[in-house]
């Protein structure tokens, strides 16, 4: 059984078709990369999967469970983690609190009105451990608004991990990272890959060839090529549509 299975997804706004009959299947322990020129519909597809945008037709199954009719928060509850292209964390919360509140969604009810949440040891320890996984534990008590861009990208990932996802959606995780930070993040994602299947939208070809097991090339809302990174690199359609253009 695939970890995430997208079947014949369609979406259009009036005459503009942004997703045309998209099917992607991602196995357990696999990393799938989605590439394509700007405006190809990559972010739209991420929105459709995460639930911010309802598809016109098609199915999305996570571990065999149909999720395409669930709200955003239900999908997260069902195990779909997500990071954003533009960093969105809670600026007035510390790194630890950002992570803890994400963990809280998956550990017991949040309809508790009478206990100091900041003193819940189990939550805090788990949050700290999650920060440790991304290498941010030394910044745990810094308000997010005071973190650097690279640290925010890591926090973003920690927030997603704290929700104990079964599947991870990454929207341009490498965006805006310096060289050293990028290398570190690729290593981190590579270490996660085996236990956590993921779909990532990315422009950084080096990262894709290091991480992805399979690649889909999206152009004008349709998938024009699909396969291993090497297959896609050799595919003339994909080269013409995207790789050639990217090489300009």
């Amino acid at each position: 059984m695939s970890s995430l299975e997208i079947r014949n997804l369609n979406k259009s706004f009036g005459a503009l078709t942004v997703s045309r009959d998209i099917s992607i299947s991602i196995g357990t322990g696999q990393c799938h990369a989605l590439i394509g020129p700007n405006g190809a519909g990559k972010t739209t597809l991420i929105h459709q999967i995460s639930g911010g945008l309802r598809s016109d037709s098609g199915n999305i199954l996570m571990d065999g469970q149909e999720i395409s009719h669930m709200s955003v928060s239900r999908r997260v509850q069902a195990g779909l983690g997500r990071t954003f292209q533009i960093t969105t964390v809670l600026p007035s919360f510390t790194a630890l609190e950002n992570t803890a509140i994400a963990a809280q969604a998956k550990s017991g009810s949040s309809l508790r009105f009478f206990r100091n949440a900041a003193r819940e040891t189990a939550l805090n320890e788990f949050a700290l451990a999650t920060l440790q996984r991304v290498g941010l534990e030394h910044r745990a008590n810094i308000p997010a608004m005071d973190l650097s861009h690279g640290e925010l990208r890591l926090l973003e990932l920690a927030i997603a991990l704290a929700g104990k996802p079964k599947f991870l959606l990454l929207d341009e995780p490498m965006a805006g990272l310096g060289r050293a930070e990028g290398v570190a993040l690729v290593a981190l994602l590579a270490s996660l890959r085996g236990s956590l299947p993921m779909l990532m939208v990315e422009h950084d070809m080096d990262a894709i060839f290091q991480l992805a097991d399979t690649v889909s090339v999206l152009v004008d809302g349709s998938i024009v090529a699909q396969g291993t990174p090497d297959e896609v690199r050799a595919d003339p359609v994909a080269r013409a549509a995207y790789l050639g253009e990217a090489g300009k």
Partner: peptide, 26 residues
């Protein structure tokens, strides 16, 4: 009590960034 509780924390998260709170599963 409410302001310090789990509930209060979610409420503040939703105030700061409702989309993010939604994607945290709330």
């Amino acid at each position: 009590q409410i302001s310090r509780s789990r509930f209060g924390r979610v409420l503040r998260a939703a105030r700061d960034n409702p989309e993010r709170a939604e994607v945290m599963g709330y």
